[in-house]
């Protein structure tokens, strides 16, 4: 997972602009990787063509939500909104194409001192879901999808335990 990190770390000594330049060259290498293996024939429009109906989403967008929540939330905060530790990814689809996004996820990034975005190149689950995460974040950015865990269109809402019983459970003790 940290295959590109040794060289990234060394760059900390270089001047700020030097760091940025070097990181970009990584991004471009990764971009080629991304273009060949991740996006594979689909263009960005298909990938970001999410569906949201009454707060419910298509399966790919849900998978993106799930992958984001499992892997990225611990640094980037809930629902793509950012945290004190890592930047918001809400507007990432405006600043980066899918290819650039996939490259950052694959290669990691260390522009600001002490801020490390790890490389996920060796994480099959993440790399398989890069498109879905981008799709989910795009739906968030466009304002079509709110916060929290969306349901999947056409699926029963049966997976959420306790939702309805709220009132009777809380507040009864003590």
């Amino acid at each position: 997972m940290f295959s590109t990190k040794a060289s990234l770390t060394k760059m900390r000594g270089a001047g700020y602009s030097g760091v940025r330049w070097l990181v970009w060259s990584f991004v471009f290498t990764g971009l080629m990787f991304a273009a060949s293996s991740v996006v594979a024939g689909e263009d960005d429009d298909d990938i970001t063509d999410y569906t949201v109906e009454d707060g419910k989403v298509d399966q790919a967008t849900f998978d993106g939500y799930e992958a984001y929540t499992r892997v990225c939330q611990s640094c980037h905060g809930p629902d793509g909104l950012g945290s004190s530790f890592a930047p918001s990814l809400m507007d990432i689809s405006q600043s980066r194409t899918l290819g650039e996004f996939a490259a950052t996820v694959a290669n990691g990034q260390e522009i600001q001192p002490g801020q490390v975005m790890p490389s996920f190149a060796d994480d099959e689950y993440v790399m398989n879901n890069v498109n879905n995460i981008y799709r989910y974040l795009t739906a968030r950015a466009e304002g079509d999808l709110g916060r929290g865990r969306p349901d999947v269109i056409g699926e029963e809402q049966g997976d959420d335990k306790n939702k309805e019983e709220e009132e009777s459970d809380n507040g009864s003790e003590e």
């Binding site: 611990s74 905060g77 809930p78 629902d79 004190s84 530790f85």
Partner: peptide
Amino acid sequence: AGIGLAAGLE
């Protein structure tokens, strides 16, 4: 705290 609450909660 900063990671969880920076963006506020639902």
